[in-house]
Design a protein around this nucleic acid. Structure first.
Lengths: 340, 340
DNA sequence: CTGTTAGCGCTTTCAT
DNA sequence: ATGAAAGCGCTAACAG
């Protein structure tokens, strides 16, 4: 049953040419001086036999595999950032390449192994993706291998794709200001302690900077700020409780949608209406933000675009520094006066 | 800067042997009759030079790449079933292989291209994953290439990994029965019309069979059944409204967690308590089920285990038919009398 | 008991 | 204008 694969030699033979000639024709080289007839015959033969090049053989000669390695810490595990993968896959396919997926759990030893595995397979480039945008440790890679950092940074590899968190942070506050809020504004989730230590996330820092800039620009201050290590619904629920003791809450900024989810539950439990009594803005555009009632107004983390851009940069040969991808404002119904 | 990669010839030279000898030693063949000293020298040399085999060259000789293709319709896109990928990656790594990720969107042309791309790279096997468990169209594959179906079936490829939906369906009802429910039980989500047409999902059919068997075993009938095409929160919200017009609702079976999410919202809107007034069971163990208050009791879709099993079966050479993976019962707080 | 040779399928020089 | 030959790095089948 196992039909032998059609080789270039088969095509050449059918076309009555040498395999070298067939190779030149099929790889579409222009500078060659073969007859137009030869071109036609080779293409016809390849078509007829269903010829497909053997990537391994080609790689042996050319060191090109049309394969990209996608090495991440927790991206597949977390499912939250699957847009990163989706974007990378779509763009990879559009460029007629293929993606090798490796996961490391953030463990340096597994990171090293993943890179070895990728290099053993002669990948054309490596995308190093991080779940939390941060300075990422990356093991040694031959200078000839292109590397793009995705949602993370590394001094040795300047090309990095990041969300434009500064503008995103500003946008969240501007939404509230535009809706007329000026008092009883609270922020939940940001943890200064975490941001000073090893857990420091570059993008969260920028987001908070954007938030603070916009507050200052509007001459506003937070009536309450409560922080948490884990940005899960449970924490959101509890933090809102603390906030309510400090101020007559009118508007709440949540560092992510899962915190916001918990905030919805806490507000519902005491009969506060969203957005009638309290406006809410958040970050991520997680799936749940569309499920909530009313829909959650949120600043989207543009994972899909980031994934695409990473592949695009990897395949284009020019070095570039940080690429900031805009964070879209997704208006739903959780901010007073905004429709949704 | 580009250091040339260390080749087998380099290792052999340093060890003072032929590259053939070095090859035999490093691939760990037993039947060879080389001196123990030769073994030691080759391993030492490889270690010292940091030798790594070139997979492309090896593939050219052996047709083995230690690479598996994971071809899915919407798995990465949907993010919901990311456990499938996670399991596959983890098991692949454990077996010292690597995963090639391809996505097709269910488009036959892209499916064919994905298979070509995989075959061009000499993958050792293909996992064909489907988002909705169903009879999947699979283009021609050489008889020598192993194929495992994941969350789907295909007549030509008998090895298929599926959730044990029949038992899962039964388990959901048994939970309700054990909690003493006998009246006012409703089912939402199942659509007979969809199940008869092209959208038919093999596993949903089995789940419903399990549900009906268990109901019959306990001499119970549904007080209301409402169906929907899309199993999203919005539908869950609306379906509960319809159900409440037909019966004094005591227990609700939802075909998935997102429907259950909508049901929570509908019940909260009219002040019904879960599980005090109404018990709820569902399927999937989606992330949101842990976020809800009270936590949602649900029958888990064992995606992670399924992903692992698919790779395991692919790598083991024995053919097997359908492999049913048990669906764990995840008890949280949405069924009366059950603790959470 | 050990080492040499040939060739996997392809592309790139270099001779015609 | 075209084709022959070499060789990428590896392993399976051979001689020695």
């Amino acid at each position: 049953m196992t039909k032998k694969r059609v080789t270039l030699a088969d095509v050449a033979q059918l076309a009555g040419l040498s395999s070298a000639a067939a190779s030149m024709i099929l790889t579409g080289r222009q500078d060659t001086r073969l007859s137009a007839d030869a071109y036609a015959r080779v293409h016809a033969a390849a078509q007829k036999l269903g010829y497909r090049p053997n990537v391994a053989a080609r790689a042996l000669r050319t060191d090109k595999t049309r394969t990209i390695a996608f090495i991440s810490d927790y991206v597949t595990t977390t499912r939250f950032a699957s847009g990163l993968i989706r974007g990378a896959i779509d763009e990879t396919e559009a460029a007629d390449h293929v993606l090798l997926m490796l996961e490391t759990g953030g463990d340096p030893e597994r990171e090293a192994q993943a890179i070895e595995a990728a290099l053993d397979r002669q990948v054309d480039g490596i995308i190093f993706a991080a779940m939390r945008a941060r300075e990422v440790y990356v093991p040694d890679v031959p200078a000839s291998t292109r590397v793009v950092m995705l949602n993370g940074t590394n001094v040795r590899f300047p090309t990095a794709i990041l969300p434009d968190e500064l503008a995103g942070g500003r946008a969240a506050i501007e939404l509230l200001v535009a809706a007329g809020h000026s008092e009883g504004i609270a922020l939940i989730g940001y943890s200064e302690i975490a941001e000073r230590g090893r857990m420091r996330s570059e993008t969260v820092t920028r987001r908070v900077n954007g938030i603070q800039q916009a507050m200052a620009d509007a001459n506003l201050t937070f009536a309450a700020e409560e922080s948490a290590w884990d940005w899960e619904p449970q924490a959101g629920f509890e933090l809102v409780g603390k906030v309510l003791k400090q101020t007559d809450l009118k508007a709440l900024v949540c560092m992510n949608d899962r915190l916001a989810f918990g905030a919805y539950q806490a507000l519902a439990a005491i009969g506060r209406n969203i957005p009638g009594d309290v406006s809410l803005v958040s970050f991520d555009n997680d799936e749940i933000s569309a499920y909530l009632r009313p829909g959650l107004t949120t600043i989207e983390l543009p994972y899909y675009q980031m994934g695409r851009e990473a592949v695009r940069r990897l395949l284009s040969s020019e070095e570039s520094g940080e690429i900031l991808i805009p964070m879209p404002v997704v208006q739903r119904g959780s901010v007073r006066g905004s429709s949704g």
